[in-house]
Every structure is written in structure tokens, then in C-alpha cells.
Simulated scan of single mutants.
Amino acid sequence: MTVLSGATASGRQFYQGQLSTSSVTTLYTAPAASSNVTSTTAGTSGSSGSAGSATAYVKEIVLSNNMSSSVTASITIGPNSSNQYPFIPNVTINGFDTKIISGLNTMLPANSVIQGFASAAGIYCTISGVEIQ
């Protein structure tokens, strides 16, 4: 990836709120492509090409349980809402406890999606990171 002189990096909160218990919900979508950041991607035939790309980096996820009983939460990442891959699968948060997953540096290509779900009500989630455009 090449970051051009016009690029900006902004630390921000990608999501803060209660995770849904009825369905998997989109929590964050990475920015669309930008001419200030370029990346080389391999084609299906092994050739490589260059395309503009905005990127986002997930730095920290905080999961807090506001209920007395344990609850399981899952966070997935994928290229779109239909193609998701486990990122933080089935983590149990004890009653009135918090899980902090820090030290992350997970890159999200342009338009990638973070989704989440909880097995019961009471799980609050904060996702922080950096966007480069």
C-alpha cells in the first residue's frame, strides 16, 4: 500500500452501541475508494494491478456486559454484509464484566463491513480505529 501526500489519517470511533440479539447487524462500513491511498492487489490469474483504496484499521474493541448473567458476543469482518468471516467469535462476557481487545492493527479494505451479534441483551460494544483517505 502506498499513502500519497494528500492522504489523511483520522482516529475515530467506528461504532458504539448495544449489539443486536435478533439478527447480525452491520456496525461499521469502511470508507469508499480514495485516490490518496493505492494498493496492489493480485488478480485471479496471478497478475497484479493497482487500484485506489481507502483503508481503515481496527485498533480496539470493548465489549461490556450490563446484565448479571454471562452473554456470548461475536464480531465478524468481511468484504460485504453477505460474506463475513469470524474476527472475535463467540466470546463470553461474564455478568457485569468487560472484555477489552486491544493492540489490534487489522486492515479493512474499502467498503469492508464489520458486523456483530449478542446471544442476549445487555452487551455494549465500542470499536475504535483509524481511517486513511
Rank of each mutant, 00 (worst) to 15 (best):
T98E: 09
S102W: 08
P79E: 14
C125L: 12
G6H: 06
F14W: 09
G103Y: 05
G52H: 10
G46L: 08
D97F: 13
S70Q: 14
I77L: 08
A121Y: 11
K59Q: 13
Q84K: 06
P31Q: 11
T29Y: 05
N80S: 08
Q115M: 15
T55W: 07
M67E: 15
A32M: 12
V71S: 01
Y124V: 07
T41K: 11
T76E: 14
N65P: 02
V3M: 05
N105C: 04
S23Y: 12
G129M: 03
T38H: 04
A54D: 00
G103T: 00
F87N: 01
S128L: 14
G52V: 13
S47L: 09
I77V: 09
V113A: 05
I61E: 02
T29K: 07
I123T: 03
N66A: 15
Y85P: 13
Q18D: 13
N94V: 10
A73P: 01
T21P: 00
A42H: 11
L108S: 04
A9S: 12
G6P: 06
D97M: 13
S128A: 12
Y85T: 15
G46E: 10
T2H: 10
Y124N: 10
S82D: 14
Y28D: 02
P86F: 07
I123D: 01
T106G: 03
L19M: 06
L4M: 13
L108F: 04
G52I: 12
T40H: 08
Y15E: 01
L27N: 01
P109L: 06
G129P: 02
S23I: 04
T29W: 04
R12A: 11
A42T: 15
T29P: 04
S82T: 13
